[in-house]
Structure formats: structure tokens, C-alpha cells
Amino acid sequence: MSATVTARRGGRLTYAVLVCAVLVSAFPLYWTLVAASRSNAELARPLPALLPGPRLLDNFRSVLDEAAIGKALLNSLVVSGSITAGTVLCSTLAGFAFAKLRFRGRGALLAAVVASMMIPPQLGVIPLFMLIVKLHWVNQLQAVVLPGLVSAFGVFFMRQFLVQSLPDELIEAARVDGASHARIFWSIVVPIARPAMAVLGLLTFMTAWNDFFWPIVALSSQEPTVQVALRQLGGGYVHDQSVIMAGTLLGTLPVLLVFGLLGRQIVGGIMQGAVKG
């Protein structure tokens, strides 16, 4: 029935709504670029500039001097990279055990993992802070990395993927051939799990890069991540709007870059995660 098919195709109004939504989504970021590439005086004019100006590099230079953005970018890369690698590994290991191995307490442990996803980690920051004080980890990157490795979502995500995508016969055949669990994991599970590991890695990297509460508690301006530096930048001692926006832009560019290159996979991962389970 071709009439029906036509009806489900988007009309002009559909595109108009979508274009508006895209404009609203993108405009604040575009405005950041405009503000970061102008001088403060230009922004305060009666008719503010709406196109990017020539001062982007100057403003970048000022913010690199005034706030520790350079160091913050490096720290964020280290922190987010470590969290991503560790989370993907831990989640794949545990996800495989939950999906394909049989052991006592499996149901209860998995239920505990799923239930813990309901509890916001922000509620545990006080003891966590006392813990890292005791360990003398305040202002050290491992204070952010280690708690960041706990991802109940990751375990669940990998388990759901492996339940469906890893054929029991493959594992059985390897067992018959006398392969150890470790060998089965590296030679059979990891190659099959790779697409899901990539998606989990992307989502974890973005979450880790953007994480806010715990890093500002555990770190300071001496050893900041990008979000800690942005907090400092917004804390009031830099008054130049265009410099603040230059810092914001610098701190956001790496994620936007990842997003621009792999946006399709990220969209897929979010939608996939939503219907699975």
C-alpha cells in the first residue's frame, strides 16, 4: 500500500522541526566558538558579533597561561584512557562469566550488579573521600581512575551482548580440545566481543571525560582534569568572557572530535543499550 508508505515519510513540517532542534542543539557550541574567537570588548558591543573572529589563537594562549588547561587536557587523556581500558577489560571478563559460565551464586551476584545501577555513586563520595585521604591519594590521578573502573553498566552490557553473540558450541569445542578458560577468553571471547567492547569503550570514554563531582572533590588545580580546570575557570577569578569560552572550547574539542568521527557508533550504542535487557 504505497499511500501508507508515503504517509510514514517525513514531510516538510517534519524537517522543519528537526532543523530547529538541530539548531538549538548546536547553537550554544557555535556561540562558544564565536565568543572564544573575539575579544571581550567585541562581545559587549550593542550589536554582538555572530560570526567567528580572528582572536581564537590569542585566547587559547591566554587560557593556557591563566588556567592549567594544557596539563588538564593531558591528565584527562590519561584518566579517561585508563578508565576506558580498565572498564572494558573488567566488564568483558565479568560479562563473559555471567553470560556463559556456570557457578554458584551467579544469579544473586548478577542481581546485585543490576540493582547497584539504580544507586547514584554521588551518594558515596564522603567515605570515598575519607578513604583517599587515608591512602594519601588526594590530588593524585589514581584517586579518580580506580573508582572510575567500577561500571555495573559495563558488566551488564557485555553480558547481554555475549549471551546472544557467543555460540555455546564454540566454547564447548575449545573445551574438548583442552583449552583453559584463560585461553578460551583471549582466543574466542575477545574476538567475538570486539564490536561491543568498542561501543562500551566509546561510551565509557565520554562519561569519564565529562565526569564532574568526584574529580572536583578528589583533585585540585595542582593536578586537574579538564572538568576541574573548567570549574576553576568559572570560579570567578578569570573575568574575560572570551578567555573562559576559549577554555571551554579547548576542553570540549577532544570529545567533540571523538563524536564527529564515531558519532554513528555512539548513537547505535545508546539505542542498542536502551532496548536490550
Binding site: V5, R8, R9, G10, G11, T14, Y15, L18, A21, V22, S25, A26, P28, L29, W31, T32, M206, W209, N210, F212, V226, Q227, L230, R231, L233, G234, I244, M245, T248, G251, T252, V255, L256, F259, G263, R264, I266, V267, I270
Partner: peptide, 27 residues
């Protein structure tokens, strides 16, 4: 709906999600 450029629309609508709380709040 069936759309042209649907990957573009989906990705563009997710741009704010990729922006951190700190950056979004400063902007």
C-alpha cells in the same frame, strides 16, 4: 519518519550530551 540524513539528525541531536556539565553550564 523515513528521513533523508537521519544519521546526521540523530548525531546532531546528541551533541549536547557529548558536552560536559561543566562546559554546558559555563556556556
Amino acid at each position: 519518519y523515513r528521513l533523508r540524513g537521519r544519521t546526521f539528525f540523530r548525531t546532531a541531536l546528541l551533541l549536547p550530551y557529548a558536552t560536559s556539565v561543566a562546559a554546558a553550564s559555563l556556556i
